[in-house]
Amino acid sequence: MNALQYPEIKPKKKFIKRIYIAVMLWVVGRAIQAAAKVDKEVKEEFAKLKDNFLLKMWIWPNGPSMYVGKTKDGKVKYLGWKDKGYKPTLTMTIKSVEAAMLLFTFQEATAIATTRNRLVVDGDLPDACALVRILNIVEVYLLPKIIARLAVKRYPKWSQMNPLRKHFGRILVYVRAFTF
């Protein structure tokens, strides 16, 4: 057997998909920060979390990543994508770029991705559950109903989130996420 016929293969990178995911993580991170100021429910969920709460959401093995945490004065802040020696209390690892693509192109809801074993959570389970609830609300604000229905487990009913709150909140989340 000629071993040279069967060379070593180094798999390539998926640059475009990684750029898309990086942008989506940035948008979601900023939107979480904005929603924590705008939406009462998100505010309450964050209030229940520990004071040193810090979320790291990243794509295994080489990123991109997103850091969101609570500051000393209790405000929620998007801390960027670079690891500046943070010590996350909750790490959500998405197992591959393709799994992240399914999640961030809204082909799979967070709950479904979890059942299909695409996410690994390191940290307190109640915190992770709270974060999934926060992500669901943020997605409802960010996305039109037709897409958000695919991305969340249950789209909120009229009684849970009335159109006034939804549309007014959506404008505020977008303005805050993309301006300051």
Partner: peptide, 17 residues
């Protein structure tokens, strides 16, 4: 299969076909 290994730290030692 190789495409599925993109963007990982895996190196295929040899692909025997």
């Amino acid at each position: 299969l190789i495409k599925a290994l993109y963007d990982s730290n895996i190196i295929i030692g040899a692909l025997f076909t």
